[in-house]
Structures are given as C-alpha cells and as structure tokens.
Write a protein that binds this DNA or RNA. Structure first.
Lengths: 362, 362
DNA sequence: CTGAAAGCGCTTACAG
DNA sequence: CTGAAAGCGCTTACAG
C-alpha cells in the first residue's frame, strides 16, 4: 500500500480494504454510513485510514460518481487580476466568500482568457456545481462557455440572461440621480469618466459618434442616465465631454481627468463611474493645483472606504457591493438545493453627499 | 441523447459516438489526437458535439482518469472573508491571479472553518493539483489537512514547513527597522498595534505575560524586532504598550488606538503591524482631535495605496505583496511541471517615510 | 485509420 | 452486518 508517491494520489479505500481483509464497500460505509457496520470495525477502519493519511474518499472519484464537487464557480470579471484592483469588486467577492465560508464550500475563480480557446476550456472544465457570473461582457466567450455548462447560475450586474436570476442595481436611475446632484449645484459643463464601451475598445476621449457603439450594458445604462438628467435640466449633451476608461484604476482616473480638464472650456465638474476612477481624478487635480471642490467638483460611484477618508471626502453614489455578493451566493445555494429560484433582486442605491462637490466657481 | 437535464451532466462522448455510429475512442481522439482520424470525420464529430453543446470531455472523468484537474488550490488565510478586507492581502491574491490567468488555470479558494470537520473536508476535497497556502496559523486544522494532501505546495508567510518552499519577508528585521525610525525621531513611549497572538486569543491590551504565549510566528517575529530595536536604543520594553488586534481592519485599528492612547502616560508614537490598522488609528486620532504627526506619530506596515493618499500620508514599511503572490504561483507551476523546487524566496522590504511621523512634541 | 478492453476510485442497490 | 456487481465518463495501449 505505498504507491502514493508514484500515483500522486493517496492510498485508496480499496487498498485499505485489502489490508484489513474487508470489502471495499465496508470501508466506504465506514466513512459514509456508520450504521452499516459495527462501531468496533468502523474504528478499526478509520484507524488504519488515519495511519495511511487517508482523510476520505478520493474527490475525483466522488465527483464522477456523485456528479457534484461541493464547489462554486465564480467568473469574476473577464480580467481576474484587474478586478482585485477595485475595492468595490473585491467587496462583491467578499460577500460571496462570506456565504461560502458559512456553507464550507470552496470557490473556483475562473480567469478569462487572453486567448479564447483556453478560456473557454477553463470554464467548461471548472470543478463547480453552480456558477456566479460577475460583470462579464454579454458576448464574451467566457459568458458563452459558462451558459453552455447549463448548471445553476446567478448573474451579478452583467450579462443579464433571460431565465437566469440576477442581482444588481438600477444603473440608469443611479447615474441620473448622481448627475442631477451636480446639475442642481449649478454645473453645466460636465466631464464624464466612463467605463469601457466595448470589451476591446481603445479608451480615451469619446466623441458622440463613438458613444453610439457602446455594447457594455452597464456603461450604456449609466450614460443614458446622465444624458437624461442633462436633458431634464436643459444642459446640452453635446457639450458634455466623455472619456472612456478601459478599467477601473486610479491611474486611468488620473489620465482621464487630465484629458478632460484640457478641453476648452474646461468642465467644472467631473462625474466618474467608479470611486477608484474619481480618486485618480482627485489626485490629478491635486497635482495640477486645482482646488476641489471650489474650482472643480468631483463625484464617484460605489462608495468604497477610501473615498470616505480621502481629502476632500468623496461625494458618491453608494451601492451595496457586499450585499450583491451575498445575495447572489444565497440564491445560488437555494437553486442548488432545488428550491425555486428567488426572483431577481434589484438592490437599493443612495446618493452620499460629502465634500468633493460645491457650486461652480465664478 | 437528451438525458442532459436529468443527469445534470451534458451529452457524453459515448452518446455522441452512438449517434454517429463510430467508436467511443474515435470521438475521444477527435478532441485529443487529431492525427488519429481523418479531418472529415473529425469535423463531423466536432460538429455534432457543437450541436449538443459539448465543449469537451467531462471534467470529472478527466480528473479521475488523468489525475489532474488543471486547478490550483489557494488557502487564503484561515478566515477567507476577512482577508478581503485588507488590501495588502488582496494584492497577494492579485499576484497569484496574474500568473493563473496567464496559465489559464482556475483558482480554488478554500475557506477555513468555523467547525473543524467541515473545513478539513473542504481542503481534503478541493479540486486542485497543487496548493498555495497564505497566512495560516501553523497548528490550524486547515494547514494539517493541506499538508496531508501531499500535493506540490508553496507557502506564503506562514506556516513555514520543513521541506516546502516558501515566499516571504524577514519580519523580524522589517519590524526592527520600522521601530528604529520612530526611536530615532526621539520617541520613547511607544504603543504597538500588533496582530493576533494565537488563533483564538481574545485580543485587547497585552500584558508582558500574555506576550509570552504568542503562537503566531509573524506576530512573534515582529514583536521581537520591535523589542530588539528598543533594547538597542535603551528604551524600556516594559513601558511599551502592546494591543492585540484580532484581525487587520480599520475598526480594530480605531479600537486599539483608543485603548493605547488611554494609557498614562500616553504613547507619543503608534507602531501598527498593518497599514489598515494604522489607518484606523489615524482616524481615531482625528476623531479625538489629536494632531498627527505633531502630537502623535503613527507608522504602518505594508504600504497599501490608501496609505499613500491618506492625510497625513502614512509612513510605513513596504513589502512586495503582488510579488509574493506571483512568486508563489510561479514556484508552484514549476513544481507542477516537475522542475526542482526553486529555493525559498526572502523578498526585500523598504522603509517609506512620509508625513505621519515627526519628533515628539515638547 | 478504427474499435474492444481495461481501469482510474468510488457508491449504491442488492443478495446473502 | 457484509460483500460481489454495475457503472459514473473517460483515455490509453493494443490489435486489427
């Protein structure tokens, strides 16, 4: 019974059975159905198992036999490493992890793919009984491969899929409320730090014509919300400068703010689609010697902790990230238990006014 | 060929073979050994597969048959959800994810356990070819269960295991350097916001006698470094107030600072074992109307982004978190490829002096 | 180029 | 209370 090293696998239950002179089944029962054998024999078997470092049946065999792995798959954006750069996204994952810990369930984080094929493979192959999909472009091969699995699935934010429960917020409404706040302060020349328009668009200053080509639903909804607020306030949308940020990072926020501020006339208020982006803009303003909020107002979106402690503290639109993750995980677990799917959840958002906004100068 | 819904599994290669009137093997070859059959037949098979939503062989069967899953297990602290609250820890995970994405490999995040049994089970059962262990107490059942797997394993920070490669920093030396900075400014009354002493200790003010019972190697090393610096500078260790924080969060930092500042005489400098803790202390000082750095110096440990943008910007000890994760993942991949283990890596650290430290008042 | 056979490690009726 | 048998879905020599 010492083929462990060679096989890369531990001692098998069968080997244990042979050693003890009992049947394969009996060893299995010792682990799974204690009532099927005498306590004495069971102890003898468990003892031998311990001696051989066997903690239980082989997980690969279990999966094949039982058809479940006890693990949840998580598609955490199409660019796994980038997602960790935004605390808002991390909170979503933390929410998922909170539920997973409680259920003693492991989480399989599936990376998207530089190359299409291998990415498809990783999702198709992920050892998971169900999937949580967070912020994936609707036409991404990752999403396609995920849906092809046909396992219980819950979607957070994007992509909404007919028939699948999702958890999210009303992005349109939220962006409108945020923009209204800025407009009500009297600003008319706005700059928007938007998120990406399509999975592979180049980023940068976005002419109105480029705004036609947006395929990312989240960006489209928010931009539409901004536009609606402007229309209601009688502010000309053509004069709103939009900059596309490819990812939510402070460095993109800095670049975007610098570009936006170089417009003539310069915007008096910047609306960022994430706090991380807004924090980058804040930094750019500091560097340029621009006083926030008296020379420039900046608003974010998300309400991450560092926005609250920034100087000036960031006005933002709060959304419940932790709750998003928790809800999605809970829904997935009830799906897995065969309960009928909970209805999709639209979570509440809230405008949080702090110190980074003020009426325009002059 | 429509048992999909029932079985929870997709169409099998066998079913495909039956439908096409070819052998099981031939279908397998279509996926794995294109040279074993005619291109025309291969296309016919792949076509049928597509029609049935079959993206490849069943992953469970593959794992059992081939003995590998193509996934990496990650034990990300013993309390998975808490780890996401510290940006430093998240950066480690980001480093791991960067390499994983590049290798198109999924990551299995295994939660620790409220209850021992189930936690043990989750590690024992994780669908992983190798393990990365990050910041787990040496005697945690999670660690024990992980080592029992006997798969290629790399440890980050803790617990160092004879025979296993690890990636980390010299905590003793780093803490000493940090403390020396404070001492050189002239401070003699220090307060230390330490990390937990043992997995289940209560936290709070830590008398010298309680300091004897530390089992967490990281806390022990750092405290020893502080102590050594004090001894070298002739500062009495008995007068250094130590507070044990159970986890690295701003709220623990606030509580710790409040408790430490209530000592008589109050410390003139606070040394925190993480930036997140230091940021909490900074907040507590603000709230109490204490001016940092002129009435109180605060130093952190880690160098997370929000420490640099805090007001005042945090003096800290930088450690390369991203690099820790990357190195560990790279070492694990070379282990998995059968290369000899790279030697353990001790990564460099650096004292970063910013605005949160100054000579003591008076 | 194709197909029948063995076996990866296990669980679950089922017969004793 | 115990054990022999079937089968989960696949790959890999091997014989044709």
């Amino acid at each position: 019974v010492s083929d462990e090293a060679a096989s890369g696998r531990g001692t098998t239950l069968k080997a244990l059975a042979r050693e003890l002179g009992v049947s394969h089944t009996t060893v299995s029962n010792a682990f799974n159905r204690p009532d099927q054998l005498s306590p004495a024999l069971r102890e003898r078997i468990l003892d031998a198992a311990r001696r051989h470092g066997v903690t239980g049946p082989d997980p690969a065999a279990l999966w094949l036999r039982l058809g479940r792995t006890g693990q949840l798959g998580v598609l955490f954006t199409d660019r796994l490493p980038y997602a960790f750069a935004d605390p808002a996204a991390v909170q979503v994952l933390q929410g998922i992890a909170t539920v997973a810990e409680h259920e003693a369930t492991a989480l399989v984080l599936v990376p998207g793919s530089p190359t299409v094929d291998r990415g498809t493979h990783a999702v198709a192959t992920a050892a998971a009984d169900g999937l949580i999909i967070y912020s994936i472009p609707p036409d991404d091969p990752l999403a396609t491969a995920a849906f092809a699995r046909r396992v219980p699935t819950v979607v957070i934010d994007q992509p909404r899929q007919p028939g699948l429960p999702f958890v999210g917020i009303d992005d349109h409404h939220a962006a409108r409320a945020l923009t209204e706040h800025v407009l009500e302060l009297g600003h008319r020349r706005l700059g928007i730090l938007a998120l990406r328009f399509t999975p592979h668009s180049p980023g940068g200053d976005a002419s109105p014509s480029r705004q036609q080509s947006i395929t990312e639903p989240l960006t489209a909804s928010r931009l539409a919300g901004c536009r609606e607020a402007c229309a209601a306030a009688g502010a000309a949308w053509e004069e709103v400068a939009v900059y596309e940020c490819r990812e939510s990072s402070t460095s993109q926020g800095r670049d975007a703010a610098a570009a936006l501020l170089a417009h003539t006339p310069a915007p008096t208020a910047l609306v960022a689609f994430s706090d991380v982006l807004a924090l980058g803009a804040l930094d750019a303003a500091h560097t340029a010697g621009i006083d926030v909020p008296y020379q420039l107002s900046i608003v974010g979106f998300d309400d991450v902790p560092s926005g609250a402690t920034a100087r000036p503290a960031l006005t933002t639109l709060r959304q419940p990230h932790l709750e998003k993750g928790k809800r999605a995980a809970e829904q997935l677990f009830s799906l897995l238990r065969g309960q009928t799917a909970a209805p999709s959840a639209l979570l509440p958002t809230e405008l949080v006014i702090r110190r980074s906004t003020a009426p325009p100068a002059r």
